[in-house]
């Protein structure tokens, strides 16, 4: 097709080259560097770094935090999207803005909010100390900060999708005699399943990779409050490059798997949306 919009081949290929060079330098090369660093002293060194007790503790903590934050955000994200798209109420726009808040606030500030609230000098600090509850510099604080940071992923993914699908399906189900739960489980959930899965993947990747907010509330206690990203930082600061890159390679591997799954889902999901034939 030759039209005014079809650029000449020189422009086209130089643009592609610029884009590829940029991506190569900024994404592919660092990624390769991570794996190169991880295996610099052979598979044995990588293996030792990964099964070292502090590294294992960091992995366990990361899995625990993601294991709490992701399901929680699935439930809350679903509830928020359902409320926003299927009902009319007065403060809807405020709720939508609030959902975006974690994206617009710096993660460090998010972490500091929790220190201000639950830290020793914080608002609830004295009360928490009296009752012997530790939130800041302990696992609960890390979970809270992660939940906050990763909250928007599921809701952001679902709201546009559910808005586009409208309320007709739910109303049809109700008029056919379905209960609220039946409507959700048999009509709404199947309609949004691919979008939901996509949101969960992104949410999970961020929950495992979050550094800023978690760093503020964690206290960096080895074997106790270090997640994988924090553990990597400590190793790196101790000039233990191979170990740092070895643990980093696990996170990078997770990112690659997520990316692959995401592409797969996008492909499946577009297929289904096109098939719906609006």
């Amino acid at each position: 097709m030759s039209s005014a919009l079809a650029p000449n081949p020189v422009v086209k290929w130089s643009l592609i080259a610029v884009a590829l060079a940029f991506l190569g330098l900024n994404l592919a090369l660092p990624l390769a560097a991570v794996f190169a660093g991880a295996f610099a002293k052979g598979l044995g060194a990588w293996h030792d770094a990964v099964i070292e007790p502090d590294a294992l503790a960091a992995m366990r903590l990361t899995l625990l935090v993601a294991g709490i934050a992701v399901p929680l955000n699935i439930v809350i994200g679903l509830a928020a999207s359902w409320a926003i798209t299927k009902f009319d109420f007065r403060w809807k726009s405020i709720l939508i803005t609030l959902i975006d808040l974690p994206f617009s606030v710096s993660p460090v500030v998010s972490g500091l909010i929790y220190v201000l609230l639950f830290g020793l000098q914080g608002w609830f600090g004295p009360w928490l100390r009296e009752h012997d509850v530790k939130i800041i510099f302990a696992v609960p604080g890390i979970v809270l900060a992660t939940v906050f940071i990763t909250f928007p992923f599921v809701a952001r993914e679902l709201i546009p999708l559910m808005q586009e699908q409208g309320r007709d399906d739910e109303e049809a189900a109700r008029s056919l005699g379905a209960s609220g739960w039946q409507t959700f489980a048999r009509v709404t959930l199947p309609n949004i399943r691919w979008g939901l899965l996509y949101g969960v993947l992104l949410c999970n990747a961020r929950a495992m990779g979050e550094f800023g907010a978690v760093s503020v509330v964690s206290g960096h206690i080895r074997g106790l409050t270090n997640t994988m990203p924090l553990h990597i930082e400590i190793l790196y600061n101790e000039y233990n490059y191979v170990a740092a890159f070895a643990v980093a390679s696990l996170l990078a591997g997770l990112a690659l798997v997520t990316l692959g799954l995401k592409s797969l889902l996008e492909w499946r999901y577009r297929d289904q949306l096109a098939g719906a034939g609006h």
């Binding site: 007709d168 049809a172 008029s175 056919l176 199947p190």
Partner: peptide, 14 residues
């Protein structure tokens, strides 16, 4: 006990 037919059908696509 009302049957409702929508303009855009509202069939369950899945």
């Amino acid at each position: 006990g009302v049957g409702f037919v929508f303009q855009h059908y509202a069939l369950f696509r899945h």
